[in-house]
Write a protein that binds this DNA or RNA. Structure first.
Lengths: 346, 346
DNA sequence: GTCCAGAATAATAGCGCTATTATGTAGCCG
DNA sequence: CGGCTACATAATAGCGCTATTATTCTGGAC
């Protein structure tokens, strides 16, 4: 057989490559590559002419080629239930800010509270050989766990703490949130307590808050506590609706904790309409400290989860793990805690 | 010189590759690749055994290798000012949902309203040979424009419409928002109008709303209009503060439009405290229709921007462009409009 | 049976970069 | 002034996949 004809029409990209930069700088591609990865290892003169060449050619590196060659990328894959939720938006924003400073890119996915989807999202995430994966909460399918374990990618679970973490975790205990709300109401002399929750069947963390709430409340003398819930996502409308149901079913209710501040705001508005005095006749505690919570009238007593801090700490752990790729893989669990903000509504 | 020793210790990844799948399925790697890219071109029998091999080996494709070889990735890079802002969070969520259905990944970046950062974010985005880039607003540096033009990547500008779009655009005219608010207040018989805005120097779109507002208002007979602003990000606190300033400087003010609903909520709360009757003595119009706007008391008249629709339409354009890579590159501009929701506050 | 179009599968040559090894070049000691 | 570090730069061989071309395998038409 004759030598294979070189007719292969390989779509020669006219992209500017590292070779073009090297040629223009009169150096080898290796040196240019080194310039990007370990700037200190190249001489000042070389750096100078490489920088000039990059500028002149308007060179944009191909991170896929780099990632392939290095068998790892500077992508951090974040999987949250939804960025529509201000809590996660806050954390994602904080993560992105701090990771961005280290030239780490955020790839974002939503499960929309469908835990079932998480596995395929994780699978796709791993297709990018990410530098780390961030997951929300602690409940993941066993296949998800296996995938992540086998991949050896650093994993951070956020927004929830519990007994079993996969690798690293940053968050707080949601049952403690419920306990704190209950204790607060009991301290204010409230005996007939309710927890008003939205979507508790899907939002496990809210469910844990509810559970912590009733358990603690019921341990107090002469205190009764119940949960009223609604299947729709949290909103002020749902809160108003839930309050209506609450006063109907438990006319002597005098202490309410809500699964979040949207619900609590609805409760306040509805109480205004119904002429129920807050906090005289009814104390209300929210969760979230959303934008309106300090400003509304009466201002809302609420528990503030440190969404921003969670993002910052998660970013810190990831960065530490990446740079200290050697050393002991220190399993880190950070309890960020939360804060009860006592305002007028209780 | 002797033949080069093959001592090169190439970090042989023990990752499962397409070759492993092919070997197990007793087919060639090409066929397996085809199975992923054009499933219809592979026979049923082959598909079957490939699927079995993937399952057995727990194969996770390497999208970086694929992207490199194909000179394009299934990443859509989205650059927004901030996901902390519910508007953009909504759009990002919608985009991610619809893009996800087409196996397009979202890579997210924030400018934090620093337009100056956008260029480097775009540069990084292009390093991933994205399938499309989504930018917020219409004002971009010339270098950014050049980078994007040269890359030939589809670009969608969202949340703002104007005269000059780079490629595709989905949004609405913010000056029209201001006009609508002004017309509404004038129609309600209000003569002494104010626009209360936060961070107008950084938020160009809010500034355009303010501008549209005063221009339209001043064209009405006997109507006066002014802008009062605050440099901090929008919040109910800032709104309360701005209302204080408003009644101090313009005691006869009877119509107020706010740069967004956070501000408007603060106005309502502060009016309650000051005993200013809404809407009898003062009409208030917001922007955003946030979660609390329909529920608060009085409920807030506001202008609803279709954040969700913007995301959906942007996703649709991107998907259409990608699949119709051939055909005419139809420059698309979609005006999503917005809705005035007349409620109790006006 | 032969031949041929069309379908299915395989072989091949990179995509643009990094990690590793190899080579050159100063600087310093005895 | 040989020899020996350190430092700076270059050569090389893939990373795992896709696009292209080449080959084989059908099943009819004749």
């Amino acid at each position: 057989m004759a030598a294979p004809k070189p007719t292969r029409t390989r779509r020669k990209m006219q992209r500017v490559t590292i070779m073009d930069v090297a040629a223009r700088a009169e150096l080898s591609p290796s040196t240019v590559s080194l310039y990007f990865r370990k700037p200190d290892a190249v001489s000042a003169a070389a750096s100078e002419s490489i920088a000039r060449a990059i500028e002149a050619l308007d060179y944009v590196p191909n991170l896929m080629a780099g990632g392939l060659a290095a068998a790892s990328s500077r992508v951090v894959s974040i999987i949250v239930p939804s960025v529509r939720n201000a809590f996660f938006a806050e954390t994602v924003a904080a993560l992105q800010e701090d990771l961005g400073k280290q030239r780490l890119q955020v790839m974002l996915s939503h499960t929309e509270y469908k835990e079932h989807d998480e596995e395929s999202l994780v699978r796709t995430a791993l297709s990018w050989a990410p530098a780390a994966v961030v997951l929300t909460g602690l409940s993941h399918s066993s296949a998800t766990r296996r995938l992540l374990r086998d991949s050896k990618v650093p994993v951070v679970e956020i927004w929830e703490l519990g007994s079993q973490t996969m690798d690293m975790a940053v968050g707080f205990h949601h049952d403690q949130v419920g306990q704190t709300a209950a204790s607060h109401l009991v301290q204010r002399g409230r005996k007939r307590l309710l927890f008003l929750g939205a979507r508790l069947h899907e939002d496990r963390r809210a469910a844990r808050r509810a559970q912590g709430f009733v358990e603690t409340a019921r341990n107090a003398p002469d205190v009764t506590a119940d949960i009223i819930q609604h299947p729709a996502p949290a909103s002020a409308e749902v809160g108003a609706m839930l309050l209506g149901e609450a006063v109907h079913r438990f006319p002597n209710v005098n202490g309410i904790a809500c699964s979040n501040d949207h619900i609590a705001l609805g409760v306040i508005f509805e109480c205004q309409r119904l002429g129920i005095a807050i906090p005289e006749r009814l104390s209300v505690v929210g969760f979230g400290d959303l934008s309106f919570s300090a400003a509304c009238n009466p201002s809302l007593t609420t528990i503030r989860p440190p969404g921003d801090l969670i993002g910052k700490e998660a970013a810190r752990l990831i960065i530490a793990r990446i740079s200290h790729a050697n050393g002991e893989p220190q399993q880190a669990v950070i309890d960020t805690r939360f804060t009860l903000l006592h305002r007028q509504s209780s």
